[in-house]
C-alpha cells in the first residue's frame, strides 16, 4: 500500500486512480491512506461548481480548466453523475465536454457516481479531493451532480462555491428561496446569449443587495461556456474569493466549520460501521421473535445496546 501511495504522490496517474477507487469502495485501508497523506494537503484551491442539470456545468468546467492552464496551474477535476437507484450503475459522461484536456499531463479528470449519496456529491469525494491536493494539483474543481434546490453538501468541501444559473428557470421567487441560492460565492449566469439573461442577473443582484455590509458580495458573471465568453473573468473572481477566504476572519470561520464537519463525518462513518457489527453480534433468532411478537420493541433494544457501548452515558 505504501508503494502505491508513493507512486501516487510522485504523480502516477494510475496509482492516484486506484487509490480513489479503494476509497470510493469503502476499502478498510482508506483511513490509513488519509492519515498518511493529510499532512500534505491544504495547498490547493478547491472550487465547487453546482447548478441544475443541463445548466452547462461541464462545459463551464472545461473552459475554467483552460483558463487555469493558461496561467500554468495544474488542475484536478472530480465530476459527479448520478448512480441508478435501481441497478446501482451509472453513466458517467461529464468528461465528454472535457476530453480535449485528456492527454494534458497537468490535468487529471475523475468521474464518480453518487452511489446513494444525496447531497450532490458522491461517497469518497472528500477523500478524492484531499488526495489530489496531496498529489500537488494547484486547483481542484468538484463538479456536483445536477442539483435541484437543496443539495448543498458542496459547502463542506469547496473553498469557493460557484452556482451556475440559466435563463428561463422560473421567476424571482425562485431566486429568493433558501438553499442553493444562499451558498454561492460566485454566480455564473450561463447561456447568456439566451433571452431573459438580463432579468435573471438583475434579480440575483437585487437579492444580493438585500443584505448590506457583507464581507464578501458574490459577483455575478454572464458566461457563454460554449464559446468561452466571460470565463476568464469568472475564473478571476474565483481566485479573488479564494484570496479573501484565506486572508479574512470570515475565512477562518469557514475553515473551522469545514474541519469540524470533517471530524464529525469520519466519526459517523466509523461509528456506523461499528454499529452494524455490534447489532449483528447482538441479533438472535429469539430476539427477532420477541420483536415480532411485540414483547419488546426496537427502542428498548437500541437503548439496551447503547447502554452497553456507553456505560457512562
Amino acid at each position: 500500500m505504501d508503494k502505491l501511495i508513493d507512486k501516487a504522490l510522485a504523480g502516477d496517474t494510475r496509482a492516484i486512480a486506484r487509490i480513489i477507487s479503494l476509497i470510493e469502495n469503502g476499502d478498510p485501508v482508506s483511513d490509513a491512506v488519509m492519515r498518511r497523506i493529510y499532512p500534505l494537503t491544504g495547498r490547493a484551491v478547491v472550487i465547487g461548481i453546482t447548478g441544475s442539470p443541463g445548466a452547462g456545468k461541464s462545459t463551464l468546467t472545461d473552459k475554467v480548466i483552460e483558463s487555469f492552464r493558461k496561467q500554468g496551474k495544474t488542475v484536478g477535476i472530480i465530476a459527479i453523475d448520478p448512480s441508478s437507484p435501481f441497478s446501482g450503475g451509472a453513466i458517467l459522461a461529464d468528461r465528454i465536454r472535457m476530453q480535449r484536456h485528456t492527454g494534458d499531463d497537468g490535468v487529471y479528470i475523475r468521474s464518480m457516481g453518487t452511489r446513494g449519496s444525496l447531497g450532490g456529491l458522491s461517497r469518497g469525494t472528500r477523500e478524492a479531493v484531499l488526495l489530489l491536493d496531496a498529489c500537488g494539483k494547484d486547483v481542484i474543481v468538484i463538479e456536483t451532480v445536477g442539483v435541484g434546490q437543496s443539495e448543498v453538501d458542496i459547502i463542506k468541501l469547496a473553498d469557493t462555491v460557484c452556482v451556475v444559473l440559466v435563463p428561463g428557470m422560473g421567476d424571482d421567487i425562485q431566486i429568493m428561496k433558501a438553499g442553493i441560492m444562499e451558498i454561492a460565492d460566485v454566480f455564473a449566469i450561463n447561456k447568456a446569449d439566451k433571452p431573459g439573461v438580463d432579468r435573471v442577473a438583475a434579480e440575483v443582484r437585487l437579492m444580493l443587495d438585500l443584505v448590506k455590509n457583507r464581507p464578501w458580495t458574490p459577483p455575478v458573471h454572464l458566461t457563454i461556456a460554449e464559446n468561452g465568453d466571460g470565463v476568464d473573468e469568472f475564473a478571476e473572481s474565483i481566485l479573488k474569493h479564494h484570496d479573501f477566504i484565506k486572508n479574512s476572519p470570515e475565512g477562518a470561520k469557514v475553515e473551522y466549520r469545514r474541519l469540524s464537519s470533517e471530524v464529525e463525518d469520519i466519526l459517523l462513518k466509523n461509528l456506523s460501521r461499528r454499529t452494524e457489527k455490534i447489532w449483528k453480534n447482538h441479533m438472535s433468532e429469539e430476539l427477532m421473535k420477541e420483536l415480532a411478537a411485540r414483547e419488546t420493541n426496537p427502542y428498548l433494544v437500541a437503548a439496551d445496546i447503547l447502554k452497553k457501548i456507553f456505560p457512562h452515558g
Partner: peptide, 10 residues
C-alpha cells in the same frame, strides 16, 4: 449501466 456497472462514456 442497468447491470450495475459504472460506465464512463468518452
Amino acid at each position: 449501466r442497468d447491470a450495475g456497472m459504472e460506465v464512463i462514456y468518452t
